[in-house]
């Protein structure tokens, strides 16, 4: 059960934060189809940052001394780097769709094509292979929070809550949850949030009240880019051992589906991403999931093909969309370039 919860969280949290990234863009009126590309780019930047910092030996002393607070700071810095570069990358989308009034779907697709191409081109030159890894060690030994850090011995019990939420976890997961809560409150309970949302619903009305629609859309997409970039790095850190391969396995698109399924509302999105995280987790680890701890790997013994489990998240998305699409309410003005002269 502990394993199941931890694994589900590992998949659910990047989905959740990237889906929120989608919400910020679409609430301001820009369809951000580029989430996948920005995630790929963010993952690359974060891993590159870790790799270069390790190469420079900045945190070697902290690592040797077991100073885990400093190492967590290192992780946060990498997340920040990914977020900043994700935001910068997303400017390409906002520039095309706000200033040039371009087709946002095509612009997003361009970014989705550009990110893996650029990342793989650079990785191949930097690392001479198709994967960029950490310079030394692995993600678990550098960044994972373990019970030994709190003075527990190897055989000490921490209880269910302790072993689920404190042992063998990444700080990044909790930072993402915290950010998710804060940003959701900002979107719904502050003046800025209301203004942002009004630009996605009726930009003409917002403009008439003195809100700068272009600026708001830029802000929305930039926050979106930052969150997606960070989410990409968190995904690479927690599921791929801090390696970048120019691929996030369709997570950005899945996040878009989560966003639509969650009806563009944070609370629903949190629930939806947990659901999808669970399916992703089953797909990835169905053979080693022991639900009630009796040593029987139920899902593996049913004898269903692993391909079916892998297909499940996408299949469920389609089915769920089929049932919810009639009720779903997208921001009214999303995807429509704002033109001041238009009535």
């Amino acid at each position: 059960m502990t394993f199941l919860i931890q694994q589900t969280l590992i998949y659910a949290i990047p989905l959740m934060i990237v889906a929120l990234a989608g919400v910020y863009a679409e609430r301001s009126g820009i369809i951000n189809l580029a989430l996948e590309g920005i995630m790929i780019f963010g993952a690359f930047v974060g891993v590159l940052f870790v790799n270069l910092t390790q190469q420079a030996g900045t945190f070697d002393a902290a690592k040797a001394a077991g100073d885990w607070v400093a190492l967590q700071g290192f992780e946060l810095l990498a997340m920040l780097a990914a977020a900043v570069m994700g935001a910068i990358f997303s400017l390409l989308l906002s520039f095309a769709s706000v200033n040039l009034k371009a087709d946002q779907t095509i612009g997003g697709t361009a970014l989705n094509l550009m990110a893996p191409a650029l990342v793989l081109f650079l990785i191949r030159i930097i690392a001479n292979q198709n994967t960029l890894q950490m310079y030394s060690g692995d993600a678990a030994s550098w960044f994972m929070i373990k019970k030994s850090l709190f003075g527990y011995g190897r055989n000490d019990e921490m209880g269910f809550l302790g072993s689920t939420f404190i042992d063998k976890v990444y700080l990044a997961t909790y930072i993402c949850i915290l950010l998710f809560v804060i940003l959701s409150i900002i979107l719904y309970k502050t003046r800025f949030g209301l203004r942002l949302r009004s630009c996605g619903e009726n930009p003409q009305a917002a403009d008439s009240l003195g809100i700068n629609v272009y600026k708001m859309r830029y802000i929305g997409t930039t926050i979106s880019g930052a969150l997606a970039g960070m989410g990409g790095f968190v995904y690479a850190l927690t599921t791929a051992n801090c390696a970048s391969t120019g691929d996030v396995a369709g997570f950005g698109f899945l996040a878009l589906a989560v966003m639509i399924f969650g009806n563009w509302k944070p609370l629903n999105i949190a629930g939806a991403s947990l659901l999808f995280g669970l399916f992703k987790c089953i797909a990835a680890a169905y053979s080693s999931i022991d639900i009630n701890g009796d040593g029987v790997f139920l899902l593996a013994e049913i004898g269903i093909s692993p391909h079916f489990y892998r297909m499940l998240p996408y299949l469920i998305t389609l089915i769920v969309l089929a049932f919810t699409s009639k009720k779903s309410r997208a921001p009214k003005a999303e995807g429509i370039p704002y033109d001041k002269g238009q009535r």
Binding site: A96, A102, T109, A110, A117
Partner: peptide
Amino acid sequence: VIISVIVYLSAF
């Protein structure tokens, strides 16, 4: 990369 730049440009 070249292809993606072309797609980006064709968007507008």
